[in-house]
Simulated scan of single mutants.
Amino acid sequence: MTAPAHAFHLAQLNVATLRYPLDDPRVAPFVELLDPVNAAADGAPGFVWRLVGEGDDDATGLRPLGEDVIVNLSVWETPEALWDYAYRSGHLDVMRRRREWFERHVRAHLVLWWVPAGHVPTVAEAVARLTELQERGPSPRAFTFASPHTAAEAAQESGAGPAAV
């Protein structure tokens, strides 16, 4: 029996290497956009959860990949919901300016993977998925918008049932 589509959500991690420290005036426009962009995500159709720092409204203080790398980790009901937020909202305006604030990545900087509904991914889990994508390429366990996989494919590949996707 196949689990209903809503039994799984899409997790995403993206990382960005800062060109300058967050308190540098050259990054001030990005910092000023954090609250409105995060509020838009929180209110977007299909949004489930996003990582925030201790006592913060964003996760910029968390630096699991180095002092110059910020992370964004969130969960969405569907790939379409995440795509619509990322590419069909005010978020796109911020993305268009990313080269002002962030270095160009040589390796993959975005990873998507399926999680059981209600599961909150850890930063360690997210970084492991990104590493898997960087080292092995796209698979049902770690993929991108350009190389999508379904939750059913992820469950089948894991061989351990839906909870292990």
Rank of each mutant, 00 (worst) to 15 (best):
L112F: 09
R26N: 10
D93H: 06
F143K: 12
T60P: 07
F145G: 05
R97T: 15
P64R: 06
G43D: 13
A126L: 04
P64D: 11
V111N: 10
Y85V: 04
P25R: 10
E67I: 08
A126C: 05
A86P: 15
P121T: 10
N72A: 10
V48N: 12
G137F: 00
V106F: 00
A41D: 08
E67N: 11
A146Y: 05
R96W: 08
L51F: 03
R97M: 13
V123W: 11
A124L: 01
E77P: 02
D56V: 06
W76N: 03
P45R: 15
V111G: 08
P45C: 15
A41E: 09
A81M: 04
P79C: 00
D24E: 06
V111Q: 10
A142L: 07
E67W: 01
R88D: 06
P36Q: 11
H91R: 01
G118Y: 13
A40W: 05
G46S: 05
E135Y: 00
A81D: 10
T78S: 13
P36W: 03
W101Y: 13
D84T: 06
A39E: 14
G118L: 12
A39C: 05
D42M: 06
A39G: 12
T60D: 09
D35H: 04
F145D: 03
E125T: 01
L33I: 01
D24P: 13
R63T: 12
V52I: 07
H109I: 01
V120L: 09
D84C: 03
V75Y: 00
G43E: 11
L130A: 04
R98A: 13
P138G: 09
A126G: 07
P116N: 11
F47Y: 13
F102D: 01
R96I: 06
W101D: 09
R63L: 07
W101V: 07
A128W: 03
A124K: 03
R50A: 08
N38S: 10
V94I: 05
V111S: 07
A81T: 10
E125K: 04
P64M: 06
E125H: 03
R104Q: 11
H91P: 01
G66D: 10
V123S: 13
F47T: 08
R99I: 00
L82P: 09
Y87T: 09
F102I: 00
V115D: 13
A28D: 12
D42V: 05
A59R: 12
M95W: 04
W83G: 13
D42R: 14
A59D: 12
V37W: 02
V69D: 05
W83A: 13
R50L: 07
A126E: 03
A40V: 00
A142Y: 09
R129F: 00
G66I: 02
H91Y: 02
P64A: 08
A28C: 00
P64I: 06
P148M: 12
A146H: 12
A81Y: 05
G66K: 04
D58R: 03
S89V: 03
A117F: 02
